[in-house]
C-alpha cells in the first residue's frame, strides 16, 4: 500500500499516516495480519524523523489497529474493544452535527455516507 503525505498540510504527518492506514484497511489495500515496515524503515523511505512514524504507530496501537513488538515488528492486528461502538457513535455524532449545522439535508448526508461506504470493504475483526 502506498502512503502519501502532504508536507504542507495543516494535518500533522503522524495523523496523516494514521488516517491512511485506516483508510487502506477499509478499502482493502491493507489487510489484517499484514506486516508494516519498522518505524525507522518507513521514516527512512519518507525521509522524515522516525519519531513521527513512531507517534502514528503508537496511535494505531492504542486504537487496536496495530500490534508492535520487538519480535514480529509492526503487524496489523485489528481488535474491537467493547466500548468502541459508543466512542465511535460520539465522534460520528459530532461529524453529522457539523454537516447539519452547515445546512446539509438528511438525504444529502445519507447519500454522502452511502457513496463513501461503497468504497469500503469490511475487514474481519479478531
Amino acid at each position: 500500500m502506498e502512503l502519501f503525505l502532504d508536507i504542507n498540510s495543516d494535518l500533522p504527518l503522524y495523523q496523516q499516516i494514521r488516517n491512511q492506514v485506516i483508510l487502506g484497511l477499509a478499502e482493502g489495500e491493507l489487510r489484517n495480519h499484514e506486516t508494516l515496515p519498522s518505524t525507522r524503515q518507513l521514516a527512512a523511505d519518507f525521509g522524515i524523523n522516525f519519531h513521527t512514524v513512531n507517534k502514528a504507530y503508537d496511535m494505531l496501537r492504542q486504537e487496536g489497529i496495530l500490534s508492535v513488538n520487538r519480535k514480529t515488528g509492526a503487524v496489523v492486528a485489528i481488535q474491537s474493544p467493547p466500548d468502541f461502538r459508543g466512542r465511535w457513535r460520539e465522534s460520528a455524532r459530532i461529524w453529522l452535527a457539523e454537516a447539519v449545522v452547515k445546512g446539509l439535508g438528511k438525504d444529502e448526508i445519507l447519500a454522502e455516507c452511502e457513496a463513501l461506504m461503497s468504497a469500503f470493504c469490511q475487514p474481519e475483526p479478531e
Binding site: 502506498e2 502512503l3 503525505l5 508536507i7 504542507n8 524503515q41 518507513l42 523511505d45 519518507f46
Partner: peptide, 13 residues
C-alpha cells in the same frame, strides 16, 4: 503543486 512524500509499505518485501 502539492509537495508530497510517499512510501510503499510492501516495497521491502
Amino acid at each position: 503543486v502539492v509537495e508530497t512524500i510517499v512510501a510503499d509499505t510492501a516495497v521491502h518485501r
